[in-house]
């Protein structure tokens, strides 16, 4: 059986100026959580939006293969895609206000999703919405259903988004920073809810997050992106124990851990910034910031295997 989601050699450009995604490949299996991490601006959200076919105008997408349950998505009509979106494939967006309509109540937006895809009564749809709001830890769901997005706190909005994405029992959930506005106890609650759905319904998840604590605790597999490329991919335990790519190693060194923090000392960071990547860029995009860079890093970089399931994009040997 084919994987739930296959993304092979995805490329996304904006107006021929910005190469946001450069040959990225990611696979999500049923019941699996695949985390996507990486520098701010490295192309994580664009990858997610490309899969959902929700890129901004002026964006160009191409891929060797882009498939959901074996079905090719690149050749799919707009209506075919609209049928999958919000239904079998759902997405939680990085910024709730981009996808919640300020003019409609939470309740009408949530029930609309269900009624678009499934035959159901308004009453049943409202019940389902209230039930899901309760499951993401919102009390007085009846009250919240009647409110407008601006009347909710950041974390309530984020939980509404999560509940909305689950309305149609998706098989694939793409979650882009779904818990940034939540306190850690609610975050834990949401992560347990999602894990339960994985166990019970085989939900597959592509989870984008900057929080390496979340990655460590919930991911089965991790892919690290840098400047539009997947520079390393490995099973979670292996990535944390044996990171190979210099960017991954730098990233893991920067994670602040409570209780081990020295105040008044700068936090660790990776010096430098990502270069501007246009079409035709060659060599390793990390070379300006890498301690191991040499002249060969300006040329095509090989992908090495560190083990069967672990590969990385760097000239250094495994």
């Amino acid at each position: 059986m084919s994987a739930l989601l296959e993304v092979d050699q995805l490329e996304v450009n904006f107006g021929g100026r910005v190469s946001a995604v450069r040959g990225a490949s990611v696979t999500v299996e049923r019941g699996e959580t695949h985390c996507l991490v990486g520098e701010s601006g490295c192309g994580k959200s664009v990858t997610a939006l490309a899969v959902m076919n929700l890129l901004a105008r002026g964006a160009r997408r191409s891929a060797k293969r882009l498939a959901f349950e074996g079905q090719d998505l690149t050749g799919l009509s707009d209506s075919g895609m609209a049928h999958l979106r919000g239904n079998a494939m759902a997405m939680i967006f990085q910024e709730p206000m981009t996808s919640l309509n300020p003019a409609y109540t939470v309740g009408s937006q949530m029930t609309e999703v269900l009624r678009r895809h499934k035959k159901t009564t308004q009453r049943a749809a409202t019940d389902r919405a209230a039930d899901l709001l309760a499951r993401v830890g919102i009390t007085a769901p009846g009250l919240r259903l009647g409110q407008f997005p601006h009347q909710l706190s950041g974390g309530l909005r984020q939980r509404v988004m999560i509940a909305m994405a689950l309305m149609c029992d998706p098989k694939l959930l793409i979650a882009d920073e779904p818990t940034t506005a939540l306190d850690v106890t609610v975050q834990a609650q949401i992560l347990r809810l999602l894990a339960g759905l994985q166990r019970d319904l085989g939900l597959g998840m592509l989870l984008i997050t900057h929080d390496l604590g979340i990655v460590a605790r919930v991911a089965h597999r991790v892919s690290v992106m840098y400047a539009g490329e997947v520079v390393e991919s490995a099973p979670t335990a292996e990535l944390f124990a044996n990171p190979k790519h210099p960017y991954t190693r730098g990233l893991l060194r920067c994670v602040p851990v409570p209780g081990k923090i020295k105040r008044d000392e700068p936090l660790g960071s990776i010096p430098g910034t990502v270069p501007r990547i246009g079409p035709g860029f060659e060599g390793c995009a990390f070379r300006d910031r890498c301690d191991f860079a040499d002249v060969t890093c300006a040329h095509a970089i090989p992908r090495h295997a560190a083990s069967v399931a672990h590969d990385f994009l760097c000239r250094l040997p495994a």
Binding site: G213, V215, R217, V218, F240
Partner: peptide, 21 residues
């Protein structure tokens, strides 16, 4: 409830229950 970057520990349940105020 803080998730430290230690694989394999899972997500803790600190016993606050699931009903929020």
């Amino acid at each position: 409830s803080v998730l430290t970057p230690e694989p394999g520990l899972g997500v803790p349940d600190v016993g606050l229950g699931d009903t929020l105020p």
